[in-house]
Design a protein around this nucleic acid. Structure first.
Lengths: 218, 218
DNA sequence: ACGTAAATTTGCGTGCACGCACTTTTCCTG
DNA sequence: CAGGAAAAGTGCGTGCACGCAAATTTACGT
């Protein structure tokens, strides 16, 4: 139903997107994030530079997207998968934590990279805003009869909270030297516990979720 | 205390910023938003194009900033001005509504302009995110002993809600032709009541504010 | 009043994002 | 299995954002 048909066209499109992501990340890791031009990425993916920009609106977006993948969509799916009995606030929190508590070794390296450059950090944080649309849809379903925009506001608030948590998590590493020292010491993860930060950031929103839920079926 | 001294340097800087804003808006109104180049704005403000970019990170930002001015700072100030007895959620809502319930005739014309072009609309919406820092400071003061990040999350949620309200308010006008018809009919404001939309968008967050307030002094 | 340190402005060069028009590929229907 | 519509890829041109380093302006102690 959500997949009326794969279709050759669609598959090729995804393949291109994938190739671009992959090339962007690989080149960024190899030569450093600021020493890779769009032209190089496009060439590595076997596509014209102009096409590259049909897929990504900025160079940073491509690199970050290789790490982020479709995490946002998975969060929404995870929320939808929870039984209707659990507190909505808990369902959302756990879904977010679960999806950000990965991860592969590949992602670790990439995060180090992202931390090192301001433009990449910003793109990474901004990518978290992508939770809003899918999460809005899921929340709207749960809060069925409530006013339509409530779901949207809550979803956007979650996105904001996640952004804040990630920001705080990445902050201590700010400089490239710090990153170096951390790597040397074997500390791959920037600082503190990301799950804790996420929970803390989402906690203040719980009452809003509870109220919305109550309003639906008292 | 916040003004240790005006200083010639600072005054000149503000004058330049003002001149750029003014020039950007005037030229955009005169020739249409997409028919004004950075070079033109800079020249009209008597400054080099490179300097222009020391003040604004994008062409849209300059135009929008002429309309937005320091609305975000005023919202925070308005919240701070309310007596400590009033419900925090109400204080914030009223402050937001008051500051967005403008406005001069000049702003009306500018809004029409902004509505007409996607890039400008985006910049306008993104500008609303500027509420976060000052609002965080004010909220942190009210929620003194609560965990520090609560203020930040709430402020960011407010910013998100405002963005959503503005988005819905601007949506019906999307196309330039629609804008034309509206002007011809004398309807300057895009659609519906902005105050209503703002209140509706902020309402779902009220429980979160209440809970945070309770937590401070039960 | 002078000189030095700091901040601001400016010119230049590089990559980049994106509109537009055109070509190539995929899809669908008779 | 055409053949034409729709969509994706491409080349080109324009304006722009921004790093860098030199020039200019402001601030301030002596």
């Amino acid at each position: 139903m959500t997949t009326p048909r794969p279709g050759l066209r669609e598959r090729k499109k995804q393949a291109t997107r994938e190739a671009l992501r992959e090339a962007a990340l690989r080149l960024a890791v190899e030569h450093g994030p600021d020493r890779v031009r769009v032209e190089d990425i496009a060439e590595a993916a076997g596509v014209s530079p102009r096409t590259y920009n049909n897929y990504f609106a900025s160079r940073e977006q491509a690199i970050v997207s290789a790490v982020t993948a479709d995490r946002e969509a998975r969060i929404a799916a995870a929320v939808a998968a929870r039984p209707a009995e659990v507190r909505l606030a808990d369902a959302v929190t756990e879904a977010v934590v679960a999806q950000y508590t990965n991860t592969g070794e590949r992602e670790q390296k990439a995060l180090l990279l992202i931390t090192a450059q301001t433009a990449l950090r910003d793109a990474f944080l901004e990518a978290a805003a992508g939770i809003e649309p899918p999460l809005t849809a899921v929340l709207a379903e749960r809060l069925a009869d409530a006013e339509a925009h409530t779901a949207r506001v809550l979803a956007a608030s979650v996105a904001a909270a996640v952004r804040i948590a990630l920001e705080g998590w990445l902050r201590p590493v700010q400089s490239a030297e710090t990153a170096e020292r951390h790597t040397a010491a074997g500390l791959v993860l920037p600082s503190g516990s990301l799950p804790d930060r996420l929970r803390a950031a989402l906690a203040p929103l719980a009452p809003a979720f509870d109220a919305a839920e109550q309003h639906t079926r008292p």
